[in-house]
Design a protein around this nucleic acid. Structure first.
Lengths: 358, 358
DNA sequence: GTGAAAGCGCTAACAG
DNA sequence: CTGTTAGCGCTTTCAC
């Protein structure tokens, strides 16, 4: 920077002003400086500027798990909006371990990040208290806080449960099961409330034994199927609180010789990319990843600009995406589909099947 | 830090020495300092230390696309090994745009990162030249450099093609097609060479018209199916150069009324998590994400320690993962599977089907 | 083994 | 509009 100043024949402060547009600079001087910058291909040192100005243009993002289809969408869009605002993103994988959370956040604090967005591992995580002892802006994303107020961006989880229930009710299902995420995560309770209350309001009721608590993983969905069917052999639909489990349930039902949606309808939450890759494609309640990420970055930057916490809870609405994994229950289906659900080799109607000659 | 020094009754240099273990410190002094650190819950400022010591313990990772199942695995494991070495990871999404690459890398340079790992968008990307004009350590991951030598970590792409071909040959396939990624990405050419040369060596040949260039996306796989079948109506297997396209092809075949693997075998490359979620589960050539990421971080840190570039090309071997999407071609299959491949409604044998009573 | 002092590269008053 | 000056919080000679 000193070199640039010398070449341009000005002081370093002027160079700084040109770079940061922080004070008016004479057009001719500016031109001189810019030429000098190009000449030595000068790149300002963000560490130094961050040290002095207390802003390294960096935000931290902590997620419970990288390479998890749902969180990856948050990573993608958070990076997108951070970059749009000239912020870099430093990423941390918590590995679903509440203690790891503290470590990473500690690292971020040392790095003087401008703010932290984090998706908590569970409601019990103590990261919040840690952050509340600092003045660093933060936003809690996706997994909200039930016990206190904090800057938060979540989807409308109650609505998600409601939409799932309404869809099943509209199709004529009267006997359904639900697979939840860990119930110490409050969004799972919210989704469940939306689901059960909507069923109740329609005069249906779901038994406790048809509510299965699980952990949002694919394998768990597969493994849960025998138990679900044993408890309630005549059910006609299952709602899983995320797509991964829903896909696991579809796979498990298929392995059991049951057809989706012919025998059992399945739907999830999230709308991860895999939904469209399956046959049948998965009906699901969309998690508004992009809108949520945008809101989180915005809120964080507002806090940062204001210099104090904004304990606002932003709730983003959601919507149902109807695909192929839900249909009316067998007894309401047309005459063309009365194949037995008990035979070992079964008929499956392939959609869009095409007559080909070779 | 000054506070800590005052409380402990020592100088700031001593505090620094205690924190960084950089010079021997008397045990009693150390105890005093550590007590003081805890007392004021002091956290060293990584910006300042980075500015002075020229190392912010930060590495940058550039990927063509976040929330892409293959790259997410690299992100996950790179973060893992970076953190294990006390490095933070700053992440950038290139959005498959060669120009965006330069922007992000420029930002990393300004941030004085200790090194950059990047998965290039294509062989044409000019990021390499940019980095070669600096002294910043870097490693090219996954998508190697064909024109020059550079620090590189790749999987054995030729072997991947070979393994795919050998598997199909062993099953008895004699008429196969291949869907490649963009052929301006050298790994696609390597994979293709391994595939075609192995076929040739077995006395089989694959026509140019059965090699379809595509872009690694799911949708492209789906859309390619009619064209593939039109060119070669009697083929019995398709190898796609990544799982996403393979899954697309499976979906496309299914939409066409064809059974996988009954009518056509399909296999991919990567072994993304979705492979196990599908029915049939996808046979694939495993991309050793974790080993590659580990090698990349190691190489980068070695460069960083050495202070100069290590133009080493590390090639990680791969292996075949056999699942359910590949089988012998129809004419070699047992008598139980002579279902017509032309009927609109088709019989599908459901694996592990189970007799249930309700 | 420890302290004093210089300075990493930049920004932000404060004068002019 | 521009230059001078004083640090940001830390590490690192260089003495002792």
């Amino acid at each position: 920077m000193k070199d640039v100043a010398t070449i341009a024949g000005v002081s370093v402060s002027t160079v700084s002003r040109v770079i940061n547009n922080t004070l008016p600079v004479d057009a001719r001087t500016r031109e001189l400086v810019e030429r000098a910058i190009r000449k030595v291909s000068y790149r300002p040192n963000l560490l130094a500027s961050g040290l002095r100005s207390k802003s390294g243009n960096l935000i931290g993002l902590a997620v419970p798990e990288i390479a998890h289809q749902s969180f990856d969408n948050f990573i993608k869009h958070t990076e997108e909006f951070a970059r749009a605002n000239k912020y870099g993103l430093i990423l941390g994988d918590i590995h679903n371990d509440p203690d790891g959370e503290a470590d990473f956040i500690d690292q971020l604090i040392r790095r003087n990040v401008d703010g932290i967005i984090f998706i908590r591992v569970s409601d019990e995580s103590r990261a919040l208290e840690m952050l509340n002892r600092t003045t660093i802006p933060y936003v809690v994303l996706d997994r909200g806080v039930s016990t206190a107020t904090a800057p938060t961006v979540v989807m409308d989880n109650y609505q998600a449960g409601r939409l799932a229930a309404e869809h099943l009710i509209a199709l004529g299902h009267r006997n359904v099961a639900c697979v939840t995420g860990p119930l110490n995560v409050s969004l799972c309770r919210d989704r469940l409330d939306g689901f059960t209350q909507t069923l109740s309001a329609a005069g249906l009721r779901i038994l406790r034994s048809d509510i299965h608590e699980s952990d949002f993983q694919f394998d768990s969905g597969v493994e849960l199927v025998p138990g679900i069917l044993e408890r309630n052999p005549s059910l006609t639909a299952v709602w899983a609180q995320n797509d991964l489990m829903a896909i696991g349930i579809m796979a498990g039902l298929r392995d059991h010789g049951l057809d989706v949606p012919g025998d059992v309808s399945v739907l999830g939450v999230d709308d991860i990319s895999a939904c469209r890759m399956l046959r049948p494609q998965l009906t699901t309640v969309k998690q508004p990843f992009r809108e949520m990420s945008r809101a989180a970055v915005d809120l964080l930057l507002r806090e940062s600009a204001l210099g104090e916490r904004i304990s606002e809870k932003i709730v983003i609405p959601t919507e149902l995406v109807i695909r192929q994994s839900t249909a009316p229950p067998r007894d309401l289906q047309g005459a063309c589909e009365q194949g037995s659900r008990f035979s070992e080799t079964r008929h499956i109607v392939v959609e869009h099947a095409v007559e080909r000659s070779r």
